[in-house]
């Protein structure tokens, strides 16, 4: 949410010192490991478990965890919660990741354009960024989600449409500070096109902060998806997502608390992991600033 002022660096971000620092960041490593496990479980889980995530069995509804082979219990329609959780993980992680890619793309484009061009284009773009940022983000998300037909694609677009601003700010600040540097001036004198300078010369120098912001955006996007789906505006049943598994769980909080606790824990683990990774990357890449 804040403009992150990055130290401009000439060296490439993937030099061994950076990699070394990242590997020494225990939390980041932990995050990587957890994400790896989670991803693996979501990819393989549905094949290993004895139940289909969509199979309804009304006789087996509300089975608590560890009933027979229902290791995480069943939901109000008697579907296996573990199978649904991993299936949901695929959806939620995919939505989070795609939303990150899309919003980073938009944010980078806007940021580069605004930072390099400056002038009225830059001002207009950055004021628009400010405008988007002064909304309680939930408004835009809910309104857009209500306006569009819900599907994983649409949810991705909605989340991306409301989370590109931070990347834009970061990139804009970075590019603005790089614009007047010698190598850019040199490029200009050599007669290189604006596009070339923007994307080939300046952008690679801003990659560090972008990666950090992108990682944190994944975390944010997963949270967003969860909240939209929790309110019923997001991923539609029978396709499970961590968020829509929580939808309705409040109703059964007294009688079947595992319905609320398990998916929520999954979200927390995934989001925490991405935040850990982001933090590690920030230290490793020596990007100053904070995420919020």
């Amino acid at each position: 949410m804040t403009a992150i002022v990055a130290n401009s660096r000439q060296e490439r971000w993937w030099n061994s010192r950076t990699a070394h620092r990242f590997m020494n960041h225990h939390l980041a490593l932990l995050g990587m490991v957890m994400i790896a496990i989670l991803t693996l479980a979501c990819v393989l889980g549905p094949y290993v478990l004895p139940y289909d995530s969509l199979y309804i069995d009304l006789r087996a509804r509300f089975a608590p965890p560890f009933t027979g082979h229902h290791y995480m219990g069943t939901d109000p329609l008697g579907r296996d919660l573990a199978a649904r959780l991993f299936m949901a993980g695929r959806v939620s992680l995919l939505v989070g990741f795609s939303a990150m890619l899309l919003s980073t793309l938009i944010g980078t484009l806007v940021g580069v354009l605004a930072g390099y061009r400056g002038g009225w284009i830059g001002t207009t773009l950055m004021r628009t960024v400010d405008g988007f940022l002064s909304f309680p983000s939930i408004f835009l998300v809910l309104a857009l989600a209500a306006a569009l037909k819900p599907s994983p694609m649409m949810i991705t677009v909605v989340i991306a449409a409301t989370s590109w601003m931070e990347v834009a700010r970061i990139v804009e600040a970075e590019v603005r500070s790089l614009r007047e540097r010698e190598f850019v001036q040199a490029g200009r004198m050599l007669g290189l096109s604006g596009t070339h300078i923007m994307f080939r010369e300046i952008l690679p120098n801003a990659v560090g902060p972008i990666i950090v912001a992108a990682t944190l955006t994944v975390a944010r996007a997963i949270l967003m998806e969860a909240y939209i789906s929790f309110l019923g505006y997001g991923i539609q049943p029978p396709l499970p997502s961590w968020g829509n598994m929580l939808n309705g769980a409040q109703q059964y909080l007294g009688t079947a608390p595992w319905l609320a606790i398990i998916p929520g824990a999954a979200i927390t683990i995934a989001v925490t992991s991405f935040n850990f990774i982001g933090d590690g990357l920030r230290d490793a890449l020596d990007v100053r600033g904070d995420h919020s």
Partner: peptide, 17 residues
């Protein structure tokens, strides 16, 4: 149906099957 109406969504999924 109205999204967020948990019971109706359960009916839907049951009928779907």
């Amino acid at each position: 149906t109205t999204s967020g109406n948990n019971l109706r969504e359960q009916v839907q999924q049951f009928l779907q099957q």
